[in-house]
Design a protein around this nucleic acid. Structure first.
Lengths: 247, 247
DNA sequence: CGGGTCGTTGACCGTGATCAAGTAACGTGG
DNA sequence: CCACGTTACTTGATCACGGTCAACGACCCG
């Protein structure tokens, strides 16, 4: 199947120049894209994890579940994100993945990674770095959930989503679509849906945000930033140490 | 300086067989040892991050600080651990590192990583996997802090430390040394020192743990496990996909 | 001795959970 | 077209987990 353009190439060439060699690797890796419907479970915790995915279209999230049914959403995935990194190191998936809307994923098999590691150190370094950036984002999440009040956590979530959408869309305004319901926001932040509702209503009445039909506008972004000490961590990666291309 | 045995080799050969080639790389990576005194700051958030470290002796922790001085301890490092992974991907360190006691670290420069990536894909895969395991551990931390009560969080911390000590010491008993004070435990779990004191006193009076002179004994480990649904995530890595050695 | 750190304990309080009722929007089938 | 179920959000009353503040004791080291 000749694809117009590989979604992985598109994603990765945002960071570094890829040689023809590198491109061949990616082409070999990438398999047919897969679609899921809103609400589908892409992957369930504990199954054999055999693929990494690139999100081509739509939002999804990864979560873990406790025995009593409590759910922690640990990562929200946007178009252009890669998901499934943690599963590379283990036989079974640690996280379940849920489609927030109709989505399209590009899978590529973990078993093909060895050739990438041998033949394209530069691509390997990039994958490693992307995984590390996700790790840094998790570090922030821990700090936010561990230390901040509900207002801070919610402000952080909104600013973080906005900053991440800006990675792939530089010209984004202060308004964006938020296809998460309040229960899901709560599960991402360790709060209840009820309290999300109350705080967001407060934010709105204070003029910090505006909401309508699934859209959010960060009306006074600076104040939200002050509430949670937000700093954008999605600047450019340090690629200076990467192995040179083509050798 | 001829060392009896490289601490990195000791650590890594626990997971895979290392070729002579690989060993040479490691030797080149480990320039030297560096010692720090109890209470020293090994690295401060925001400085140029130029090294990865292997902990050879003593405990340390990585943390981030908020503007108001609140501190989130995100990772406790034991002998044999590697620290500084997240800093590989960025120019500046995201975390500060603090010595919990007198420690010895083996630094190796980030700038030397490119040769590892080019010449030893197998070692690269192992480093990647170790970084991913740390990421998985962070995922658990998020879930624990986001969803569990104080009792659950503290039980989890104790069990997690115990399980990690068992990686390098298979014959560990149910008793171990805990060189963290209660303020630090609180900062790791998003709780206050006061509440740590109260819950641990409760655990002790219920016979779940016993304490004396900086040591903790998990007297009824099974009940602690039940409290926080603990599962040991430090089993062996999936190394099946690793590139073969020697080529 | 004196001062520092650390852990303990108690009184009080506030954030955010819990429970419950009600509303609005939407799709479905009659 | 309305009746109905479902899902999402809102709002209020009540409650409890864990924070805050403060005092005190144990221990260590100079």
């Amino acid at each position: 199947m000749a694809q117009e353009k590989s979604c992985l190439v598109e994603r990765l060439s945002h960071y570094i120049d890829l040689s023809g060699e590198d491109l061949n690797h990616i082409a070999r890796l990438e398999k047919e894209e897969r679609s899921f419907r809103r609400g589908d479970t892409v992957q369930r915790q504990g199954v054999r994890a055999e693929h990494l995915f690139v999100v081509k279209k739509g939002w999804a999230y990864s979560y873990s579940t406790l025995a009593d049914g409590q759910r922690q959403i640990v990562r929200i995935h946007h178009p252009g994100d890669m998901l499934g990194f943690p599963d590379i190191a283990f036989e079974r998936a640690w996280l379940s993945v849920h489609a927030l809307e109709d989505i399209v994923l590009c899978p590529f098999p973990k078993s093909a990674l060895d050739r990438v590691f041998v033949e394209s150190p530069r691509l390997t370094a990039l994958l490693f770095s992307l995984s590390l950036r996700e790790q840094v984002s998790l570090l922030d999440t821990v700090t936010v959930i561990g230390q901040m009040s509900a207002r801070g956590r919610i402000a952080y979530l909104l600013l973080d989503l906005h900053a991440r959408l800006r990675i792939t869309n530089r010209h984004i305004t202060d308004t964006f679509r938020l296809p998460l319901n309040q229960s899901e926001i709560g599960d991402a932040l360790g709060l209840t849906n009820v309290y999300i509702s109350k705080v967001m209503a407060a934010f709105e009445s204070e003029g910090l945000i505006a909401r309508s039909a699934g859209m959010v506008r960060l009306a006074r972004r600076d104040e939200l930033v002050a509430i949670c000490e937000f700093t954008d961590r999605y600047g450019d990666l340090d690629t200076s140490w990467f192995p040179a291309s083509g050798i």
